[in-house]
Design a protein around this nucleic acid. Structure first.
Length: 493
RNA sequence: GUCCCCUUCGUCUAGUGGCCCAGGACACUGGGUUUUCAUCCCAGCAACAGGGGUUCGACUCCCCUAGGGGACGCCA
């Protein structure tokens, strides 16, 4: 049997550390066994998927050296490698599944489902679909379809017993069918859900082993059921531990930087980042902590993967990165640093905003300190302002995070416009509104032009600085976050 | 709330019944080298969640409790 593995990110945001983590294990395992490693884009969520994200993920994985043998850009024997290009496959198979009684049409409205779930929750039950449409006759279904009633197709779940499946690291796992929802497989927009697409594609692409995050463990019964309805053989499942925030919750961008681009922008080397990720949950037989990807690939074995969730510790990553940097030859160091600081037209962008403010060349680097390096560490006092309270500052910074995430174009003028609108909505004078942003971004209330700075630094770094600024101001409690989220929702809708 | 997973120093981990009154790494503390700093070197601090079994012997196997995490979406 040929070993085939895959990573299947959904292109709905910035390239995530978790994607790299999972890709690392899948790729190493496949290549160790002369197999193939596949990249598949799970763009099943039309609302949130974007081609920019799709491309960014590919760039980020390539930067890390995690390239693939088959994928959306290079094709392969089992393509296409984007779900959106495989719709007819899903449509054929879902029809087959309905025909053999493994799935059924559902015409329920969102309102009805919400009501049902709310009352189930109230009664302390597992919120699930109540089977309302499961007994519909083919006549009734036909009529609804002809009437153009929006509908989905759901998975039929056994009413009794439990699902038993196997995880390489954890052994046999048993989940009662009563816990499993009649999952939507085909949405009303005729796109498959992840569960259906992934199951189908893993089979058709002949994926033999799936290394993925532990978060998927509880969806395994759905996948197993789809496989068994079709009479397919299940791939081997290896659920990797979830990367964690310092507070041990699942790693998330609200609590720390999770974008691969952030680490790239901060000057971590791809080899070091990859090495560090490999030490998350895995250890070398000789306990070496510094090793190359090649060495990892040779030494990797699932039995050396631990199951408890590792905290992603930036301090240790930085130490490791330091080791790599000091091991560089002088010319490598010069070259890599140069690429980092001035690549992608960054030097031009910085010098352009500098020139007007320069009287002597030695003015230049002092002013650009926060663009080329980390900005100074902030305290609550950094935000003392004659008009704005610290709560006002938090509000501005908190909303700015949302605003920047939603920007369709990362350009100074666009950023400027968006901020002006936000200031108006918050009923703040633009000048006052900008103060906390200047401090958060540059560490000073006066600096080079703010929007150019934001453009140059990029979303990842800017986001991290906003987050750390909010933290310096005492952070945002869950309660306040909830209130601010609601307020933001109001502004945008 | 229900189900599932997990539980060794603050953090990453070694440990697959005796080699462990638990080893390494980061961080931290102290000392040394260095024109300062960093690097580097040396030393120190610090953990088997708790309780029951099984066994001649349990960090290691089993059970219970507690704690942590995840899932419960026409998100992935």
């Amino acid at each position: 049997m040929t070993i085939r593995t895959r990573v299947a990110p959904s292109p709905t945001g910035l390239p995530h550390l978790g994607t790299a983590y999972v890709a690392l294990f899948n790729r190493a395992f496949a290549h160790q066994n002369s197999g193939k490693f596949v990249l598949r884009m799970e763009d099943t969520d039309v609302e949130r998927s974007s081609l920019e994200s799709d491309q960014a993920i590919q760039v980020a994985l390539r930067w890390l050296g995690l390239d693939w043998d088959e994928g959306p850009d290079i094709g392969g024997t089992h393509g296409p490698y984007r779900c959106s290009e495989r719709l007819s496959i899903y449509h054929d198979l879902i029809a087959e599944l309905v025909a053999i009684g493994g799935a059924f049409y559902c015409f329920c409205t969102k309102d009805r489902l919400d009501t049902v779930r709310a009352s189930q929750r109230q009664q302390g039950l597992v919120p699930k679909y109540d089977g309302h449409c499961i007994g519909l006759s083919s006549q009734e279904i036909q009529t609804e379809i002809e009437n153009g009633t929006p509908h989905v197709i759901r998975l039929k779940i056994p009413t009794e017993g439990s699902c038993v499946f196997h995880d390489t690291l954890r052994g046999t796992i048993e989940i009662p069918w009563g816990q499993v929802d009649m999952q939507v497989l085909l949405k009303s927009d005729r796109f498959p859900t992840y569960h259906f697409a992934a199951s189908v594609d893993d089979h058709l692409m002949e994926i033999s082993h799936i290394f993925r995050g532990e978060e998927w463990l509880s969806s395994c019964p759905k996948h197993q059921l789809i496989y068994s309805y079709f009479g397919w053989e299940q791939p081997e499942l290896i659920h990797l531990p979830l990367l964690r925030n310092p507070d041990h919750s699942k790693i998330s961008k609200r609590k720390q930087s999770t974008s691969i681009n952030y680490f790239r922008r901060c000057g971590y080397l791809p080899d070091a980042l990859l090495n560090y990720l490999a030490t998350m949950g895995f250890s070398m037989p000789d306990e070496r902590e510094m090793f190359s990807y090649q060495e990892f690939q040779e030494a990797f074995t699932p039995s050396r993967v631990s199951t408890s969730g590792p905290v992603f510790d930036i301090a240790k990553l930085s130490w490791l990165n330091g080791q790599y940097i000091r091991n560089l030859s002088h010319s490598e160091f010069k070259e890599k640093l140069g690429d980092w600081a001035f690549g992608d037209g960054r030097a031009d962008a910085i010098l352009r905003v500098m020139q007007d403010r320069t009287e002597r060349f030695d003015d230049v680097f002092a002013q650009a300190d926060y663009l080329l390096g980390e900005r100074i560490t902030l305290t609550a006092d950094s935000f003392n302002h004659k008009k704005l309270s610290s709560e006002d500052c938090v509000r501005v910074l908190y909303f700015s995070q949302f605003l920047l995430e939603q920007l369709h174009e990362w350009k100074s003028e666009v950023i400027s416009e968006a901020f002006k609108k936000l200031a108006t909505k918050l009923d703040l004078k633009f000048r006052d509104f900008l103060f906390p942003l200047f401090v958060a971004i540059s560490g000073r209330s006066v600096s080079l032009p703010l929007f150019d700075s934001i453009q140059i630094l990029g979303l990842d770094v800017v986001h991290a600085r906003l987050r750390s600024a909010i933290h310096a101001l005492g952070g945002v409690s869950k309660k306040i976050a909830k209130r601010l989220d609601a307020e933001w929702h109001q502004h945008t809708s």
